[in-house]
């Protein structure tokens, strides 16, 4: 059966993101019942029409779901893996008709591009990169950046994905000694790339020339920060970080996200705002995602919390559905949905 979901409620379509209005609209259930690891949304051309599809990732399968009617999805295709499990989907901005996935155990071992053609009913899988890959990010213009460890150093590579899913062009960025934890594009600056390192530094590259422009120490208040968003304004660089290792030490509560400002010219930085859990909310950050001005995080308590980054406070709290806690949460890249996954293979669409 291709339809494995439940229609929860009937609410009108809304294209503007407003977390206060988030409602559970449907549930996608992977029939295999295996553990969910990730979810994403992308455009896919099916029978000549570009559809906003949902991609679900289980340990050994990636599935493509097409919208049927309001709040219903039909599973169109699944790619199966037998040897190496799926670690994450790598969202590619502005790209349709392909999914990028990272496979591995503790570390990423392979990055593959998955293709499926609805007209020819054919599929293809292309191995894009392999090695000991620590961090990966899909960039605009069909580019993918990854950092991998070789015997003697770390390599930072940009691959441009061709129409057939293979690599069209490869470029190396100037390497750094520290392990890179996450990458982030700088909004509005197509040639700038940020990286966060395990030594609490933020590095800036010029993507066009491969130059390493700056290494900025952001302090040891929060270890192992993950960069979710970066933008440049009036000569300053604003960066939204999350803190998986943060403890409850602020008077205002447990910090989950933080906005910091960096002056790239002087390599000086300072905190602008902490996004904490509301008073009385237990738990801390497990996993999260930022889109536009909204941040969403799964907490250890099993709740999803949403912050308006401009207002500076938490605007919605979504309790787990059923007795299963959330495992991950992602904003949809194709519309105003929030996608939340549970370990049992269920994906909930808000």
């Amino acid at each position: 059966h291709s339809i494995e979901q439940t229609e929860i409620t009937d609410v009108p379509t809304c294209d503007t993101l407003n977390p206060g209005n988030l409602q559970l609209v449907s549930k996608l259930k992977n029939p295999s019942g295996s553990c969910s690891v990730d979810v994403s949304a992308t455009w896919w051309e099916i029978a000549g029409v570009k559809e906003p599809c949902i991609i679900t990732a289980c340990e050994y399968a990636i599935s493509l779901w097409k919208p049927l009617d309001i709040w219903q999805w039909e599973k169109m295709y699944s790619w199966h893996f037998t040897e190496v499990p799926v670690l994450q989907i790598v969202p590619m901005p502005d790209v349709c008709n392909l999914v990028c996935v990272a496979l591995g155990n503790l570390e990423i071992r392979e990055i593959r591009v998955l293709l499926w053609f609805s007209d020819a009913k054919s599929e293809n899988q292309v191995l894009l990169s392999s090695g000991n890959i620590q961090a990966v990010l899909g960039l605009t213009k069909r580019r993918l950046v990854s950092s991998s460890r070789t015997l003697c150093d770390q390599q930072v590579e940009i691959v441009t994905i061709a129409e057939d899913g293979g690599s069209k062009e490869k470029q190396f960025l100037m390497p750094i000694e520290e392990t890179i934890q996450t990458f982030a594009e700088v909004q509005g600056m197509q040639e700038a790339l940020l990286g966060t390192t395990i030594m609490n530094n933020i590095v800036i590259w010029n993507l066009k020339t491969g130059q390493l422009l700056r290494k900025i120490y952001i302090g040891d208040a929060y270890q192992a920060s993950i960069c979710h968003k970066a933008y440049s304004e009036m000569g300053l660089l604003f960066v939204v970080l999350s803190h998986p290792c943060a403890k409850e030490k602020e008077p205002s509560g447990s910090p989950v996200f933080q906005l910091i400002v960096i002056n790239p010219k002087t390599a000086l930085s300072m905190g602008v705002m902490l996004y904490c859990l509301p008073q009385g909310q237990a738990g801390r950050f497990l996993e999260g995602d930022v889109k536009d001005n909204f941040a969403a995080a799964v907490l250890t308590s099993g709740t999803i919390a949403i912050w308006d980054l401009l207002l500076g406070h938490c605007t919605a709290l979504l309790p787990p559905v059923s007795d299963q806690n959330w495992s991950f949460v992602k904003w949809s890249g194709t519309d105003s949905h929030l996608l939340a996954g549970q370990k049992d293979g269920s994906i909930f669409v808000y």
Partner: peptide, 23 residues
């Protein structure tokens, strides 16, 4: 936050750092 603590700001920081950095 106090902007003065961040030192002199340049709107063209990306171009300036690119011209100063190693090729």
């Amino acid at each position: 936050c106090n902007q003065a603590d961040l030192g002199p700001i340049s709107i063209n920081w990306f171009e300036e750092l690119s011209s100063e950095a190693l090729p």
